[in-house]
């Protein structure tokens, strides 16, 4: 993987991730995570549900951003894209997306709406947009691009920004999905180390054991890139949603989400 993408995946990227536990603190509070095996089971469950959804959205955003980067040079495709944008209205946007078939032609707001539709929990929507905003600030500083600038007014979901940033940093949909999957797992694991005082060596050994699943989820997610956005995975995790809402109203908490 290129150095740019490693920078993007690094937990030290100043993009606010350290204040989010990816559902781990809510699960710790609920008594569902107490040690390394229960942490691993939780991460596995989250990875193959909301992790897959996040990675697929990131891969889709990556493909769209790559297309946008291409159309920034004046050619025939650019005028088509602009035409689709000027006719944007709620029903028509979706129609443009379906008609294009490849998720290209609908604007960022359509993809962002697809992320909303897959995130029923208001607390998780807030957390995703907050992390998206922070990530956008960091990546615009590191890799300035008009494609990233165009996302600012939308305040998009985190995977949308991540996918676009991966494209600007030179990666494709598979890299976007991998970075998304890695963030899903490593952020939660780090939070568990801090919250429960778990042995970081044991936690990382467990993560290494999860690497095959992480790769499989990233590959599956990347496989949706280029398909209509409506078809992207939408795997739900009801307990994750419930715990996220409880957490948002808890008085004692260390992490935003």
């Amino acid at each position: 993987m290129d150095a740019s993408l490693l920078l993007l995946a690094d937990a030290r990227l100043p993009a606010g991730a350290h204040a989010h536990s990816g559902g781990v603190e809510p699960a710790v509070t609920a008594g569902a995570i107490t040690d390394v095996p229960t942490l691993l089971a939780f991460l596995h469950g989250r990875l193959t549900t909301s992790g897959l959804v996040t990675a697929a959205l990131a891969a889709a955003a990556n493909t769209h951003a790559t297309h946008e980067l291409g159309t920034r040079t004046p050619d025939a495709t650019a005028s088509n894209t602009i035409a689709a944008h000027t006719h944007s209205g709620c029903g028509r946007r979706a129609a443009a997306n379906v008609a294009a078939g490849a998720g290209v032609g609908g604007g960022w707001e359509v993809l962002d709406g697809e992320a909303d539709a897959r995130t029923p929990s208001p607390a998780q929507r807030r957390a995703s947009r907050a992390q998206g905003r922070s990530l956008l600030r960091a990546v615009r500083a590191a890799w300035p691009s008009p494609v990233l600038d165009a996302l600012v007014p939308l305040g998009p979901h985190h995977p949308v920004v991540l996918g676009a940033a991966t494209a600007v940093a030179g990666g494709g949909p598979r890299e976007a999905a991998s970075v998304a999957v890695f963030g899903t797992v490593s952020g939660g694991a780090s939070a568990a180390v801090r919250l429960l005082g778990l042995d970081p060596l044991a936690v990382h050994a467990a993560l290494a054991g999860l690497a095959d699943v992480m790769d499989a989820v990233a590959a599956e997610a990347a496989g949706y890139a280029g398909r209509p956005w409506a078809e992207l995975p939408a795997a739900s995790a009801p307990v994750l949603d419930l715990d996220a809402e409880r957490h948002a109203r808890a008085n004692l908490r260390l992490f935003e989400s």
Partner: peptide, 20 residues
């Protein structure tokens, strides 16, 4: 899109987990 919602009960290790 208003809601896109899947529930996949395939792998018990996933759906019995504390996340699902």
């Amino acid at each position: 899109p208003l809601l896109r919602h899947e529930l996949i009960l395939d792998d018990p290790a996933v759906y019995n987990s504390a996340a699902v």
